[in-house]
């Protein structure tokens, strides 16, 4: 295996949880809701997914448990931010803090436990192709699921009526309500989808990426996912690009540190974040006329006005 192959493989695995978590949050934000609890939902997905997999011995049940934990966490957020029209920023932050704490409790007795990582796909012939084989056809199922998710979300948002209605709720909830759409119900589904995706991304971390549990193992990936949504200006295909750019730089700076590049490692570690800032500036300078953000983003909706 060449170095380039190795780098590409690690880039893809590092980017996958970002893609999954970010595409969920993208749907949430296109519906007009900001859920800053991605990190909390993700780590609960990691803890519950790992715990369930250890107890049942089934990776599949572990994944389901991770998704379920993410959805359950998102329902707490939905109760606060949608049901009670509480401030979405505060509710999301609270959810993250809550998730980080609760996951420590759930995972406490599983520290030190080890599982086999989820097996990589092995397609006869194709996987044996030089270079293309291991990179494109030798990944774990999550990688394909993440790309499939992005394509489905793109198709859903731009090609289906339900997607149109969801975007309408995010654009102008007062108008959507005036046309007779159930804004809160639609947003609830979006928030649950976002929770499920965050849980799935968490389960990927503890079941495939690094197959063990350690507290705080999401290490800020939930926040990066949030940044990627803005970076992508709420467009699915650009989100895929952004997540891979992010994952790529994370891995490259690791390799650079390993090769003894004479730049302080702290600076290299900060590189992905610097790149995000630069990219955000470039994008916002190029855009003129109107803001790409959904019009009703972050505004609570209640039926009374």
């Amino acid at each position: 295996m060449t170095l380039l192959e190795a780098i590409l493989l690690t880039v893809i695995t590092a980017s996958t949880p970002l893609v999954i978590a970010a595409i969920g949050e993208l749907v949430v934000e296109r519906a007009g809701v900001v859920n800053l609890g991605v990190e909390g939902m993700m780590i609960m997905g990691a803890a519950c997914g790992f715990a369930a997999a250890i107890m049942t011995g089934s990776t599949f049940i572990g994944v389901l448990a991770g998704v379920g934990a993410g959805v359950a966490m998102s329902l707490i957020f939905a109760l606060l931010a949608l049901g009670l029209a509480a401030n979405q920023i505060a509710s999301g932050l609270a959810l993250t803090i809550f998730g980080l704490g609760l996951s420590g409790l759930v995972g406490a007795s599983f520290i030190g436990a080890k599982r086999e990582a989820m097996p990589k796909l092995d397609v006869p012939v194709l996987t044996d192709l030089p270079f293309v084989g291991p990179v494109v056809f030798g990944q774990d199922p999550f990688v394909y699921i993440s790309v499939l998710l992005v394509v489905s979300v793109w198709w859903f948002l731009t090609r289906t009526r339900a997607g149109l209605v969801l975007r309408a709720c995010g654009e102008n909830h007062t108008s959507a309500h005036a046309l007779g759409y159930r804004v809160l119900r639609i947003r609830l589904f979006a928030v649950m989808f976002g929770g499920g995706c965050a849980g799935l991304a968490g389960a990927y971390l503890s079941l495939a990426y690094t197959p063990f549990w350690s507290p705080g193992m999401t290490a800020g990936r939930g926040w990066i996912a949030l940044a990627i949504v803005v970076f992508a200006s709420w467009l699915p295909w650009r989100l895929l690009m952004g997540a891979y750019l992010f994952g790529g730089i994370t891995i490259l700076q690791l390799h650079a540190q390993g090769m003894g590049v004479r730049i302080p490692s702290q600076l290299l570690s900060a590189l992905p974040y610097l790149v995000t800032i630069v990219a955000l500036v470039v994008i916002s300078r190029r855009r003129s006329g109107w803001n790409a953000a959904p019009g009703a983003l972050g505004k609570p909706f209640s039926r009374d006005y």
């Binding site: 149109l164 209605v165 975007r167 654009e171 102008n172 959507a176 759409y181 109107w290 019009g295």
Partner: peptide, 27 residues
């Protein structure tokens, strides 16, 4: 026809109209 239009600024004319039609037709 509302006084303060119930339109979605970032969407196209056709999308805006499709949203108000109750039969699910393609945009």
């Amino acid at each position: 026809v509302f006084q303060h239009f119930s339109l979605f600024d970032a969407m196209t004319v056709a999308e805006n109209i499709a949203l108000a039609l109750d039969d699910a037709r393609a945009v």
